[in-house]
């Protein structure tokens, strides 16, 4: 191999590698703007530690179940994450989108440098024409846990009566 060319080639490769290596720096908790996330942490569908480390797996599993099998439970639905955690507008009233530093998902993802393409297709904020989009987690209007799920144990007649008595007007 000719020495001149190979040395030029090697030098260029090394320079590029150094450049890449310089880019990685682990963020600390101080770098993250976690206020919005913490606000609802205790009401979340999973404990905070699980959400922090496993939310991508949960979402990935749910995505395939919904897309391929039509399973539309809401506990791990991306749409429900957005409904609960993202407001439609910023403080100044302009639309809030993924990429804005106030956006719930951006707060972490920007800091850790993790690029996601969820919001190329998915709505990154709740639909604005529904005034009650930000439901209370676990409320009867809510979208979490076991609503519509058939697998749960059947209630006894007494329990049904206890549950339905105060709700009869709402049921339809």
């Amino acid at each position: 191999m000719t020495s001149k060319f190979s040395s030029v080639f090697l030098a260029a490769t090394l320079a590029f590698a150094t450049l890449l290596a310089g880019c990685s720096k682990a963020p600390t908790e101080a770098d993250l703007n976690l206020a919005t996330a913490k606000a609802k942490a205790d009401q979340c569908v999973e404990p905070e530690s699980v959400i922090r480390t496993k939310h991508m797996d949960l979402l990935m599993h749910q995505r395939d179940a919904t897309m391929i099998e039509g399973i539309r439970t809401k506990q791990h639905s991306l749409k429900e994450c957005i409904n609960c955690h993202v407001s439609t507008t910023k403080q100044d009233g302009t639309p809030l989108h993924y990429g804005d530093k106030e956006h719930f998902c951006t707060t972490c993802h920007a800091a850790v440098g993790q690029k996601i393409d969820c919001f190329q297709c998915h709505a990154d904020r709740p639909q604005t024409d529904d005034p009650n989009y930000q439901h209370t987690v676990g409320s009867t209007a809510g979208h979490h846990f076991t609503q519509g799920v058939t697998a749960a144990a059947a209630p006894t007649a007494a329990e049904v009566q206890m549950v339905t008595q105060p709700q009869q007007g709402a049921a339809k």
Partner: peptide
């Protein structure tokens, strides 16, 4: 109870 209510 909430769960049953929802199921029902």
């Amino acid at each position: 109870v909430d769960e049953y209510r929802r199921n029902f």
